[in-house]
Nucleic acid binder design. Structure first.
Lengths: 140, 140
DNA sequence: CAGTATCCCCGGGGATACTG
DNA sequence: CAGTATCCCCGGGGATACTG
């Protein structure tokens, strides 16, 4: 009976569980950082940890696990002592780079337009302020 | 004088606060849904509320406010009683549609590869299981 | 080295009631 | 109609300690 009422995505005609999932995956704090690091070639766990530096062990592990689970990353264990684990992009992971780069390029190209909009928004807007913009109204 | 150690994004050479910001914006639960609705033309607040249906008033308001702030959406008030507020994509918002559609199309095209990866991942993996895959080991 | 276990915090998001 | 106010919850993410 009840499918647990997930909001049904509709993306310009095409239906959208996959879109929603991809969006929430790349919306994660570390995913894109890790993927772009791996774009330059395979990395050991400790390489990634060192290169990204601000990431916690836990988030590196769990983000990599999610990426492995979804098929973007291949995990290879070399059972030595100490153990060695390498991560690399799969074909699927490499394919993902294109739309990601398109989005990244767009963000960089249009950054100034967003910044300008923000300046306008927080600046003086004489007409039609939002109801509770609790600005101590300047009048007197 | 520490800048509050934000992880510095590096996206294939180009630096990346804007990429990070765009990613977290479209990673939001409702942003893309709203933007794609507006892609078909201007909508009143209540239209969006009705069309998206599962969204709460609060999230519709705050997501629209974020989109307005960043310059993707234009908000137009008609001070009648009851009031009427229309939202529409700005040029910036419409420009965003391209990379978004590219990403959406990719997600749909490659959905089966992700699904296949997941099936493999949760299925029987004889070699190199993760340390604590606490599977009640089938042996005996 | 490459993890796991535990504890904790904050903010995104939801529900409900109220308002100019 | 188009919001705001309040209260609440959960899970993403961080810190720290421990381990095969």
């Amino acid at each position: 009976m009840g499918a647990p009422k997930e909001p049904e995505f509709e993306f310009r005609g095409t239906c959208c569980r996959p879109v929603k999932e991809l969006l929430s995956r790349i919306g994660g704090k570390w995913t894109v950082l890790i993927v772009t690091r791996l774009a330059d070639g395979p990395r050991r766990f400790s390489d990634l940890k060192r290169e990204i530096e601000d990431i916690s062990q836990k988030m590196l592990t769990s983000t990599l696990r999610d990426l492995e689970r979804d098929g973007f990353v291949q995990r290879t264990v070399t059972p030595s002592i100490p153990p060695r684990v390498d991560y690399e992009l799969t074909d699927l992971g490499m394919d993902l780079l294109s739309p990601l780069e398109a989005l990244g390029a767009w963000a960089v190209r249009n950054q100034h337009r967003v910044d300008a909009a923000r300046a306008r928004f927080s600046g003086y807007r004489p007409a039609a302020p939002h109801p509770n913009d609790n600005e101590t109204h300047a009048s007197i």
